[in-house]
Design a protein around this nucleic acid. Structure first.
Lengths: 340, 340
DNA sequence: TTGTATGCGTTATCAA
DNA sequence: TTGATAACGCATACAA
């Protein structure tokens, strides 16, 4: 059924060893034999077996990318970059979705797939320490997105606190007096939410404003729908806010939609700032002010870091220092926050 | 380094064969040995080698998903469904991006990865006949998204022509007199564009309207940016259209943005209808009327069809009839097309 | 420059 | 119910 190197060897009248040499481009093959073998390969339609190669080499040429939901634009944009970068380095990418379930996260890190892949790029919602426990001598993991790998694992991300502070400051500087925060999370261990809230809090405090708990809205997740619901809640209050900082762009887009439904204008009645730098926000009406992390860079550095660690592991360099790379972000001011 | 079944066997005091039996849940193992082996597995942290299993079984447990761009929401939403469905069936998914390059499409179908995967779900931009040529006895492919696999390959999709006709009719029924089409493609072999244009044309013709070539805008790709540019071109005309049917939601969202920039109101000044049923369009301002294919169903049926064909291939049933499944779609009317 | 032989970790055939 | 053993397809140490 499947064509093997042995078949090619027979056809070309050489040994299987020679076919392997040709396939892998080893220099020690005469041009003549190369010619014959190449011909035979084409005639028989031979394709190397990745399974056999993996088994033999102990390297699969596959990286694993684990994200909560692929249809959340932030992760989609990230995935695009990761896959692109990996392919540039000769690696294929297996994508797994955890759908927010810790069980799936565990499985992605401990199951056979995790062993088959040479390494994993992980955007986790669960607790890192917990996830990393009992992963003795497994393939390396690079954590992406949250601010810290807790020294346990390489981490690539932006300074969420600083970014959130910048976003909140921008609202303050735009003249907002009552700035709400949308996207606090009931489970405070959800680091992303906690960090961005912290940034918000710091900015307010620095401006001499005390946080009004009524202006901090928790959301179970970070979709447009959650943002819409949160905004509706905020707008139903007597003393509604005049500015809203949302923990993600999706929340912000939902929030703007809610304002529209209530007949309020953004930014005149209420300014909105998001976080993620989604392409979508460049075209929303009004265009969304946001914190834009350099996602391509995050993707590239993540892949590079992972590959570096994979190679280090091969050499046996056990104790390479854990990396924690801060990627640049920028505050992109668009229509949703430009007042008067 | 890596823990093998042999290691587990030694630890548990049984033969390696028995470990394999336990791992695979074969019935012919005494509860006692199961207990001992399971214990040993846990103690040693054994994980089965997928590479070895693949080599032995000739099945990798991996499907390949090939899409143009993962950060285009339509493909992201599709990918989510495909990965979910595949995981439900015990398969992992490798995702490849072609970025619109035919070379990458070829490679995805003919390279080693295509051989490693048990099958491929392909959303292609290139010519199908060309892509399928010379894929003699390779793993099966299911085509997704366009209307036809040309009888060469299984296909799952919606009736693009009928859907486009429905969308155009809706604009006509909403009172639009001059309906433009955005998203025609210079390369007419791009079937998706051709089909949706055909539906547009049919609807106009049925209404006794001749197509005004000036109202048909070509776009190189189908991103928001292209929709924005196309709309700006349309609006710069003296006799601008009062309705626009866009070949994708992304084009439509860009078009609405352009109208906004020009100070025109959607739908009052110009109605807009998209195609894809993106989540984004439910929250855009105004909310976008669109053709909504049942993407979850597309994903599910694609995976099922692919698995069915994989199994058929194992049995050796060579000539199973090629499937062409039409998935349901619906016209979802939202604010962008509701006039007066 | 090329050939022979071995083993990667599994599953599965044949015996016991 | 379990043990030896072969084979999956490849890359490489060792020979020639």
């Amino acid at each position: 059924m499947t064509v093997t190197q042995a078949d090619v060897a027979e056809r070309a009248g050489v040994s299987q060893r020679t076919v392997s040499n040709v396939v892998n481009g080893l220099p020690s093959v005469s041009p003549d034999t190369i010619e014959r073998v190449t011909m035979a390969i084409r005639e028989l339609g031979y394709t190397p077996s990745l399974a056999a190669r993996s088994l033999r080499l102990g390297r699969s040429g596959v990286l694993q990318l684990v994200v909560p939901e692929l249809d959340v634009p932030y992760f989609a944009e990230l995935a695009r970059g990761v896959i692109k970068s990996a392919e540039d380095q000769g690696y294929a990418v297996m994508v797994r979705q955890t759908l927010g379930s810790r069980e799936r996260e565990r499985d992605a890190l401990e199951g056979s797939a995790a062993e088959y892949a040479e390494g994993t790029i992980l955007s986790a919602v669960g607790d890192i320490g917990e996830l990393m426990a009992g992963r003795a001598h497994r393939a390396p993991v690079v954590l992406i997105g949250e601010r810290t790998g807790m020294g346990l694992v390489d981490h690539i991300g932006i300074d969420d606190v600083a970014a959130a502070t910048a976003a909140t400051n921008h609202l303050l500087e735009s003249g907002c007096r009552r700035v709400a925060f949308v996207g606090a999370h009931p489970d405070s261990s959800l680091r992303m939410a906690a960090l961005r809230y912290t940034g918000y809090e710091l900015a307010l405090r620095a401006a001499g404003i005390t946080v009004d708990p009524d202006l901090v809205i928790q959301t179970g997740s970070y979709h447009r729908q959650d943002g819409e619901a949160a905004m509706l809640a905020l707008l139903s209050r007597d003393d509604r806010p005049d500015g809203v900082f949302c923990a993600t762009d999706l929340l912000a887009l939902g929030a703007m939609r809610a304002a529209y439904e209530r007949g309020l204008r953004v930014p005149d009645d209420i300014a909105v700032v998001g976080f993620d730098g989604l392409e979508e926000g460049r075209y929303s009406i009004p265009a969304l002010t946001t914190i834009e992390p350099d996602k391509q860079q995050i993707a590239r550095v993540s892949v590079e870091t992972l590959l570096a660690r994979i190679r280090a592991g091969e050499i046996g360099a056990e104790s390479v220092e854990v990396r924690d790379v801060a990627i640049q972000f920028s505050l992109v001011v668009r229509e949703s926050s430009i007042r008067n």
